[in-house]
Design a protein around this nucleic acid. Structure first.
Lengths: 186, 186
DNA sequence: CCTGAAGACTTCAACTCTAAAGTTCGAAGC
DNA sequence: GCTTCGAACTTTAGAGTTGAAGTCTTCAGG
């Protein structure tokens, strides 16, 4: 019996269009144009994250580790941040950060040492190996991103960047970091 | 000493612009326009997820539960899917899905029963309460989304939706669901 | 029938995160 | 100088996830 005559045998997974149609069917007040933007945005972002995950995996790097590397690189030379600051930027609890640093220090991606000037603080510093890993991952990512936007001409890219930045500003203004560690990096 | 003369005392967290500038400084091959799009997209998406999380929390709903509700609603009446299918759509392992369904069944959001026509299968079905929860969450979400896009005129909204959809299609074509459970819903 | 293979879900152990203590250090007051 | 408070990090217990192994059902042969 290859035909799914029975109940929810093998409902095909919905495309973006089908999903939006379903939402409209179930919730009449929905503006389809708004939903198109929001749903496409979210789906796109997830697929991109999956792609990033695969790439970093080929370098023996987890997505979690990559985020720490990014935060340290963005902080600029000498690539040092404390666990608390890292936690805040990544949107994690300090406890989670402690463990993540443990692992990464074991792998040689970062070092952890007390700040001798203020011994309450700890300094997490990128190692040369960590920096090199970040660079490799970045090379892969930039190729992927360039390829992703390939079909957009300069004007479209610019406009897209501007509009997204406007939306971002709107969200950030609306949620003035309300509950503490919300911010993160990308 | 309020002045951060010492090491990495209190590096301010980077704005989007600062972040992109840092990437360029550390990785010359980067196209700033591409990075603007990608970084804004990712940051925006995270902030939105935080906002959704807060909203659903006010309804006593976790983000995880909300995603299950969405998948069931999108599947349409009679709002039934199997654990395996749900896991595939949400990008989870079947094991995780089993536990999630346990919790949600305990809370009365879904029911779980064997498919009598094919007793290997299990049918997860949305309860009336679950459907009502979804509706409440949807009402909150749609207000938020409408507000988010408020500053965009009709043309901009349309264009944004179209461009994002094009990008999505590109990613989906490039990664033909390569490793199994990649797809998810939004 | 009875057996073997495949499919769908569940169970188990290990891992990662959160929330809530706990620890250590530094700074201010007595 | 001793005490107390606050800040920064770590530890602990519990929730939720993954990957691998296990169970139950169906279906195709022998």
């Amino acid at each position: 019996m290859s035909e799914p005559s029975d109940a929810a045998a093998d409902a095909a997974e919905p495309s973006l269009e089908e999903q939006i149609a379903a939402y409209q069917r179930e919730f009449q007040d929905l503006d389809p144009q708004v939903e198109q933007v929001v749903s496409a945005l979210q789906r796109l972002n997830r697929r991109m994250n999956v792609a990033y995950g695969r790439q970093t995996a080929t370098l023996g790097l987890s997505n979690a580790e990559w985020e720490v590397l990014k935060a340290l690189v963005v902080s600029g030379a000498p690539y040092q941040l404390g666990p608390g600051e890292l936690a805040k930027r990544l949107g994690l609890t300090p406890a989670a950060m402690t463990h993540r640093i443990d692992r990464m220090a074991n792998e040689g991606l970062v070092t952890r040492e007390r700040d001798e000037a203020n011994r309450v603080r700890v300094i997490v510093e990128l190692t040369d190996e960590g920096r090199e890993k970040w660079l490799e991952a970045m090379r892969l990512a930039s190729v992927f991103e360039e390829d992703l936007l390939q079909d957009l001409n300069g004007g479209e890219r610019h406009l897209l960047g501007q509009v997204l930045t406007r939306l971002l500003r709107r969200v950030e203004d609306a949620q003035p970091d309300a509950d503490g560690r919300l911010s993160d990096l990308d």
